[in-house]
Amino acid sequence: MLRTIAVSAGYGLLPVLNGIDLSVAPGEVVGLLGRNGAGKTTLLRVIAGGLPASGGAVVLGDQDLTNAPAFRRARAGIAHVPQGRGIFNQLTVRQNLEVGTRAAKDRGDGGIPDDIFGYFPILREREAQVAGTLSGGQQQMLAIGRALCGLPSVLLLDEPSEGIQPNIVQSIAELVPRIARERGIAIVLVEQNLDLVLKASDRCLVMEKGRIVHEGAPEAFADETLLKDLLAL
């Protein structure tokens, strides 16, 4: 179970998050919606340790990770797939996956889990290819596969559909809930693509000005008036 308790954070003197309470259960996909600048990416960065929290707490199970550096959070089970994917361009696909196994060294056998290739068969085909030469969609699959190599209990996905062709967006929308269910991972999905987020999520939260202002089941967001109110769509 991942919990953030009244988390606040910002860049310099500029506050971005104002007391975020969030909890995600194992196997659950929580979609995070909101306009640009609402603080979605910042929240993921704070959970992953890329940005320090100025207040509140980040708790995974019974471990308080609020002050832990990013590499300790990764080893505790928090995986973050950022915007832009962060693939190691000079390394091959296999080497990228191997680098991803470090987080699981204390919990697993240190190898690449076989079922990663079940989710993303293309990674097996392109194992020896230099990652920088993959297409955007393939890089996104590699980024998610690499995060799964760390056997995480929490997966933070930031805009997985960004710059990707529609058929791959579709397969990501199907894979995200499947991965959560099969591996018991708590997934936080930040996404601008409303179709994807409503299809993949069990529960949706809407952020505005650094706060969570609405929570509901994906079906509730079919109401156009609500969408207009919350997201100005």
Binding site: G49, G50, F71, G86, F88, N89, Q90, Q95, R102
Partner: peptide, 20 residues
């Protein structure tokens, strides 16, 4: 391999559990 990853993107390597 890990050093190359750190050279490429140190923040990402740390987010994957490496004490860069």
């Amino acid at each position: 391999t890990v050093l190359t990853a750190i050279q490429d993107n140190e923040v990402r390597a740390a987010a994957l559990g490496h004490n860069a």
